[in-house]
Write a protein that binds this DNA or RNA. Structure first.
Length: 958
RNA sequence: GCUCGGAUGGUGGAAUUGGUAGACACGCUGGACUUAAAAUCCAGUGGGCAGUAAUGUCCGUGCGGGUUCAAGUCCCGCUCCGAGUACCA
């Protein structure tokens, strides 16, 4: 039984004299202390060594602490960092905390405790847990996103974004003052910049007479961060904005309160300006293909054309985006999103009632609802008609909720013969479905295949799709009613949160116009509040702060009651989202304590970028896209030297938990052992995996003691063979599933080196894999055998200075080769195997030679650093093993003179034959054919053919 | 629906460019040591058939085809599982 095992190990390790046994608790504590006191892993910003930057995605310090799934990536990156130090690099391997976030705030709402306090406590726990695993972090560079000395620079970057616009001619961000100068001289008619879709055109003269508010409104349509009216899911009862996935069936997931769509003034980031560069940059970085694919999909580039349609009998026109301008002669109706600005304007009196009812109905449905319900076809005719730009035909304009206001122009030209959605809509409302494809049957559905000739289409008849697209775009441009256009699915990112525990904006409002606080006044620190909930009138939590106004004379935060709107103004009440602080932290590590800038130029020029970044794939379209965006912006401003910050990225797979289930008979307070369930109706319940042993037997007494539910504590148990057997299921490791394994327990019972090795041994880094504590004895036993190799004689340390023989050298060097290759391929699981093989072989050889064992210790040191340090010291070295030179592989020790050839007959291996590698094909064939076993296999048959691959295999056919 | 992964013993997983399938471990079985246990060590362990045995032989990498002297690996067609994404015009 596992429990008994554990206790024994524990006792043995504490009563035996040190030096005899592998006494891991003591060794690990000793070296962790040593590393800390000697600042062993402190990286220097000035070094003659080549730099290497190994980064982990920093954790959010949750109250639950770490489970064994969390450190997986950290262990891998730590092995890599330590390996690089052995290889002579100056390694930057920092760690910090993404410490703003919702859970701390929720906790504060429930308990009244300040999030700063709980966050500090959680960080302390994290730090203790991380320290005991023996990571080689340079803690002098620690960052915390919730620390004012850090978020000062998050605020500063926000200001830089505000003061910038994106110039499409230069294809980079520029200072907003340059744009103002252009406006003053020429207006905006010639300006080619990323901006909102509805910017009015104006001349220099007009610009000069605009008032301040008007000017700022226009500028905000160009700024890289800007205030805009954004539709949000507002929950009045919770007083907060909900994300799409927090809404279930139109009501809030939490509490089930109604949710309405509401427009709110929010900060947005103009990430769309960088869409193409974010796409192009993917070619330059070594990131996993699936991750690149999901960013590519998320950005969603599509090529097509904008086409303007005139409305019959109106001055107005509207634009549609289409990827198939070649099908323009197949248009038989238009569809606008119900939210489209023209809808109310063009609807005829006859249709008014129906249209308004439909618009209202769709506004009540959440976006999630609309998206999930794809099958129901709905829409209403507006009564208005558009004019076909080439045929002049009248085309009915409909509205339908299958058209989304947020994509393209919120309007489509419907080509039912070429698009299945248009086809379905046309069928449902009995609209025309003209066929413009040569020899294609459209009675069953649309033809979306592009390899079809166009017909019934005037000047593009008989052309293929590609040719026709070109000609149509030319024609549109000739008539000035459209042009080729690249469209992106990517939306600007909302940057406001109605929360307390986030970065405050360095913004105050003058007559509703946002103003930036001067940079030398930063940071604007979070105010104290009584309550962390929204205010009663629906303002964000910062609305509860009484000292939250900006005095522009004294340049300090003052009490709200002093607001006079002439020199003292209200401050922004929103805070920044979680991804603000994580979008640039990798730069801060380079120069973490710089008080003068977000990161010093010298440090940036030395470290430049991350050489290896390890973290989860769940950040593919969040953090990893936003941070690339900010990096490109900082690059444009000349603030960082590279426009992609991470050269290589690895996604570690999830470690899954093995949940345990007990089965309660329905309607009774009785649990039945798994094997006895039979046909009975049972309700499976999670039990804590700590109460189950390796043979799946439940500790019933423990269960009674630990359960929160009094009824369950009194439950009866139906046993099989005197035991209660639980069911097992592999699931995500989480507290709610009671399948969490705590690394603290593993470190206490087996040691950090065992934990590190075992996490790597579980399987390929990038793959999801189930945790099973029972298997840990394998790697633990390995470390004991390694220890024993150095302590052969009744536990006493001993190495000899004898010359190693060929066998021993061969074992050592094949291990060096394997480990070098494995680390290069991030195949850490297989190096652990090769260590085991090496120790097994050297033990069998009774090898006690320093010339073998000393390099072996260095080899293992990245994986199991504590035991390696201890052995290194016992070998008589002073100082840490961490910068010892990594053993160099020498091929000459692996040169073989013979090969044990597998001999196959018709592809089936029958026997092996040892032959000299000097033999050529003919000689090998001769030797094999002469072997009596060959004759036996052939049984008198004559081989048709003999395949000989020298050094590999012999295959006899016939 | 689309995109991307994956499927190998009882279990986790090995297997460079096609070349001895199951390395290394866990578990299990048997043995040594021990009063006993733990720890440690030794041996065996994909399945079937034949044989007292050494051994021989057939089948085996999700399923069905194919290429090849040789396929876990390459090609074509499926099944199942996982992840992401979702009316994108």
């Amino acid at each position: 039984m596992l429990e008994a095992n554990r206790d024994h190990t524990f006792v043995n390790n504490h009563i035996r004299a040190s030096g005899m046994k592998y006494y891991f608790n003591e060794i690990e504590a000793k070296w962790q202390k040593y590393w800390n006191e000697n600042q062993t892993f402190r990286a220097d910003n000035k070094s003659s060594k080549e730099k290497f930057y190994v980064l982990d995605m920093f954790p959010y310090p949750s109250g639950a602490g770490l489970h064994v799934g969390h450190p997986l990536g950290y262990i891998a990156s730590d092995i890599y960092a330590r390996y690089k130090r052995h290889k002579g690099f100056n390694v930057l391997h920092p760690q910090g905390y993404d410490s703003f976030g919702l859970p701390a705030e929720q906790y504060a709402i429930q308990t009244g405790q300040h999030p700063a306090k709980t966050t500090r406590e959680n960080i302390k726990t994290y730090r203790r847990q991380l320290d005991q695993i023996g990571f080689s972090f340079d803690w002098s560079r620690e960052v915390r996103t919730s620390d004012p000395s850090y978020y000062k620079w998050t605020q500063w970057i926000f200001i830089q974004l505000f003061e910038s616009y994106y110039c499409l001619d230069a294809d980079r961000a520029r200072d907003i003052s340059e744009l103002i100068r252009i406006f003053e001289q020429k207006g905006n008619l010639k300006v080619n910049a990323a901006c909102d879709g509805d910017v009015p055109e104006f001349s220099a003269e007009q610009w000069h007479v605009f008032d301040e508010v008007k000017k700022e409104t226009i500028l905000s349509q160009y700024r890289l961060t800007y205030l805009s009216e954004t539709e949000v899911n507002w929950c009045p009862a919770l007083g907060t904005v909900l994300a799409n996935d927090e809404i279930v069936n139109g009501v809030s997931e939490r509490g089930g309160y109604p949710v309405v769509r509401k427009k709110m003034k929010q900060w947005s980031m103009r990430i769309t300006a960088y869409a193409q560069r974010l796409l192009d940059g993917l070619d330059e970085i070594d990131w996993p293909q699936p991750l690149k694919d999901s960013q590519t999909n998320w950005i969603g580039r599509s090529e097509g054309a904008m086409v303007r349609f005139q409305i019959d009998g109106h001055q107005d026109n509207f634009e549609v985006f289409t990827t198939r301008p070649d099908t323009i002669f197949g248009v038989s109706f238009m569809t606008l999103a119900p939210e489209h600005g023209l809808v109310s304007k063009i609807t005829t009196d006859d249709q008014k009632e129906a249209v308004e009812a439909y618009v209202l109905a769709t506004s009540k449905r959440s976006e999630r609802d609309r998206m999930s319900d794809v099958k129901t076809i709905s829409g209403v005719f507006t009564g208005a008609f558009a004019v076909h730009p080439f045929t002049g035909k009248r085309i009915p304009i409909w509205i339908g909720d299958y058209v989304l206001a947020s994509y393209g122009t919120g309007a489509v030209m419907a080509v039912p013969c070429g698009d299945q959605r248009d086809y379905d809509f046309a069928k449902h409302f009995k609209l025309d479905i003209p066929n413009i494809f040569e020899d294609q049957d459209i009675s069953e559905g649309a033809v979306e295949d592009k390899n079809v000739r166009i017909t019934n289409s005037d000047f593009i008849d008989g052309m293929n799709s590609g040719e026709a697209i070109k000609r149509v775009i030319e024609a549109l441009e000739g008539k000035k009613i459209g042009q080729g256009k690249v469209n992106y699915r990517l939306r600007d990112a909302v940057f406001s949160r109605q929360r307390y525990w986030g970065e405050p904006f360095p913004v105050y409002y003058v007559n509703g116009v946002p103003k930036m606080i001067e940079e030398d006044c930063l940071p604007i620190t979070l105010p104290e509040v009584e309550k962390y909930l929204p205010t009663e009138d629906g303002k964000p939590p910062l609305g509860n702060a009484s000292v939250w106004a900006w005095n522009t004379d004294t340049r300090e935060i003052v009490s709200n009651d002093q607001i006079n709107h002439s020199s003292i103004f209200p401050l922004e009440l929103n805070t920044m989202p979680g991804w603000a602080g994580s979008s640039w932290y990798f730069n801060r590590y380079m120069d973490a304590s710089n008080a003068e800038s977000f990161c010093g130029k010298e440090a940036l020029d030395y470290w430049r970028d991350v050489d290896l970044y390890i973290g989860g794939s769940e950040h593919a379209t969040g953090h990893l896209l936003y941070s690339r965006f900010w990096q490109k912006f900082l690059f444009d401003k000349g603030l960082v030297p590279v426009h992609e910050y991470a050269k290589k990225l690895i996604n570690q797979g999830m470690i899954l938990g093995t949940s345990a289930y007990v089965y309660r008979i329905e309607g009774e307070n009785t649990f039945v052992s798994k094997g006895l369930i039979g046909d009975q109706k049972v309700q499976p319940l999670h039990v804590d995996v700590a109460l189950v042993n390796a043979s799946n037997e439940l500790d019933i007494e423990g269960f009674r003691r630990h359960t929160m539910n009094k009824d369950l504590a009194k439950a009866d148990f139906i046993l099989e063979d005197g035991k209660y057997v639980v069911g097992r299921e592999v699931e995500k490791m989480s507290k709610s599933k009671y399948n969490v394994v705590n690394p603290d327990d593993i470190c206490r019972d087996y040691g950090a080196d065992t934990l590190r090795l075992y996490e790597m041994f579980l399987g390929p880094l990038e793959q999801a894999k189930p945790w099973n504590t029972a298997g840990i004895s394998g790697v633990h036993g390995f470390l004991k055998r390694l220890w024993k190799l150095f302590h052969p004689d009744n536990g006493l340390f001993f190495v000899s200075d004898e010359k190693p023989d060929a066998q021993e050298l061969k074992t050592l060097h094949k291990t060096i080769k394997k480990v070098d290759e494995d680390i290069a391929n991030f195949s850490f699981n297989t190096s652990v195997s090769s260590f085991m093989i090496a120790v097994n072989e050297l033990t069998a050889m009774k090898c006690q030679k320093r010339a073998i064992l000393e390099p072996l210790a260095v080899l293992i040191s990245p994986y199991a650093p504590h035991i390696a340090e201890e052995l290194w010291e016992k070998l008589g070295n002073t100082g840490s093993i961490s910068t010892a030179e990594f053993p160099v592989f020498e091929a000459r020790y692996l040169v073989e003179s013979t090969k044990n050839y597998p001999v196959s007959f018709n592809g089936k291996m029958r026997f092996t034959k040892e032959l000299s590698l000097d033999l050529d094909k003919e000689a090998i064939e001769k030797a094999v054919l002469e072997d009596e076993r060959t004759q036996q296999q052939l049984g008198g048959r004559v081989p048709k053919k003999v395949i000989v691959v020298p050094g590999k295999i012999v295959n006899i056919v016939g």
